[in-house]
C-alpha cells in the first residue's frame, strides 16, 4: 500500500476502495456498453437537433410492450422487445411525418407523438389492469444493479449476464453502422441538401439512424432503465461537442466520456449506496459542467479570457493609433 501514489490514497479516503468484485465489474461493463452504444448514435442525434428523441422513444414504447404482453400472455422478453422496437420506429415515423407533411416544427412533433403514445399505454394498463402485471415503474426503471443476476443460459452452461450479450451486440451493430455509413451520416447531419445533391438518400439514412436509436434505446432500457439511456444519448456527445470541431474525434470522445461516466457513476453509487443508473446520469452531468467551464476551445472561461484579450488589444490598438 505504501507504493500507492498519493492521489489514489486520497481518493480511497474519499470514496472507499474501488469496487472490484465480479458483480461490480459486470455492472461497470454493462454501463460502459450503454455509454458507448448511445454515444455512437447520440453524436448524430444531437447534430440533427433531435436530442429529445431518446426520451420520446423510451416513453412511447409503452403501448408496444403492453400489447405484446397481452398478445402473448407472458413476460417473455422477446415479444416485448419486438413490440417496443416497432413502437420506437412508429414514433420516429410519426414525428418525421408530422414535421414533413404537417409542417409542424420538430420539437412539437416529438412532443405530440410520444405523449400520446405514452397516454395510450397507461390507458391500456388501466383497462387490462387485472391481466397486466406491468406498471410504469418496471418499464421505466429497469435497474442496472440487477442486470448481472439475469444470466444467459444455453443448455447447461452459463455465459455471463444476458445484458452484456445484448448490449455488446447493440454496441457492435452501432459501431458497424457508424463506420460503414460514416460519410453518408456525416453529410446528412451537416448539410441534408448537399447530401441530396450528392445522390445520398437522405430519408433512408434518417430512418436507418432512427432505427439504430430505437434499437439502442429499447435494447438498453430493458436492462438499465430509461433514464440512463436518455442521459447517455445526450450528455456525452455534448461534452465531446464542446471539445472538438471534428466529427470523428467527437464520436471517439463521446464514447470515452460515456464509459467514464459509467465507471465513475458506479463508484459514486457504490459509495452512496444509491441508484446506479441515477448516479451515472449525475456524473455525466457533472462532467458536462466541468467541460463547459474549462474546455480549452469552447469553454466559458476560455471564451471570457479570449474576449478580455481581444478587448484589451483593441484598446492598445486604439491608443497606439496615430491621432
Amino acid at each position: 500500500m505504501d507504493t500507492q501514489p498519493f492521489y489514489v490514497a486520497a481518493l480511497d479516503g474519499l470514496f472507499g476502495s474501488f469496487p472490484t468484485d465480479a458483480d461490480s465489474l459486470w455492472v461497470m461493463l454493462i454501463g460502459s456498453l450503454v455509454g458507448a452504444s448511445c454515444a455512437l448514435v447520440g453524436s448524430f442525434l444531437i447534430l440533427r437537433r433531435l436530442s429529445m428523441l431518446g426520451d420520446a422513444i423510451s416513453h412511447a414504447v409503452l403501448p408496444g410492450i403492453v400489447i405484446a404482453f397481452l398478445l402473448t400472455g407472458s413476460r417473455n422478453i422477446f415479444p416485448m422487445l419486438i413490440g417496443a422496437g416497432a413502437l420506437g420506429l412508429l414514433t420516429a415515423f410519426l414525428t418525421d411525418s408530422l414535421h414533413r407533411y404537417g409542417k409542424l416544427q420538430s420539437d412539437a412533433s416529438i412532443g405530440v407523438t410520444f405523449t400520446w403514445l405514452f397516454a395510450v399505454g397507461v390507458i391500456l394498463i388501466s383497462r387490462f389492469a387485472g391481466q397486466v402485471d406491468l406498471d410504469t415503474d418496471c418499464v421505466l426503471y429497469g435497474e442496472i444493479i440487477f442486470a448481472p443476476l439475469d444470466v444467459l443460459i444455453i443448455g447447461d452452461n452459463e455465459y455471463g449476464p444476458r445484458a452484456v450479450w445484448m448490449l455488446g451486440g447493440v454496441t457492435l451493430a452501432n459501431l458497424l453502422f457508424v463506420v460503414f455509413g460514416y460519410k453518408q451520416l456525416k453529410v446528412c447531419a451537416f448539410d441534408p441538401e448537399l447530401a441530396a445533391s450528392l445522390g445520398i438518400k437522405v430519408s433512408l439514412w434518417h430512418y436507418l439512424l432512427m432505427g439504430a436509436v430505437s434499437m439502442t434505446t429499447v435494447g438498453a432500457f430493458e436492462s438499465v432503465g430509461a433514464i440512463l439511456v436518455v442521459a447517455m444519448l445526450v450528455v456525452p456527445p455534448n461534452i465531446a461537442y464542446l471539445l472538438t470541431d471534428r466529427l470523428g474525434l467527437m464520436i471517439a470522445l463521446a464514447v470515452f466520456f460515456g464509459i467514464l461516466s459509467a465507471v465513475l457513476g458506479y463508484w459514486v453509487a457504490y459509495w452512496l449506496d444509491a441508484s446506479v443508473a441515477g448516479a451515472m446520469a449525475t456524473v455525466s452531468g457533472l462532467l458536462f459542467v466541468l467541460v463547459a467551464l474549462f474546455s480549452p476551445t469552447h469553454g466559458v472561461i476560455a471564451r471570457v479570457v479570449a474576449q478580455r484579450r481581444l478587448g484589451s488589444s483593441t484598446i492598445e490598438f486604439a491608443d497606439s493609433a496615430p491621432s
Binding site: R49, S51, V230, V235, G278, A281
Partner: peptide, 19 residues
C-alpha cells in the same frame, strides 16, 4: 443547442432525483 440543453437537464436532474 436548445434540444441538447433540454435533454441534458431532463436526464441529469432526473438522475439526481433517483439517486
Amino acid at each position: 443547442k436548445e434540444d441538447s440543453a433540454l435533454g441534458m437537464v431532463l436526464s441529469v436532474f432526473f438522475g439526481v432525483g433517483i439517486v
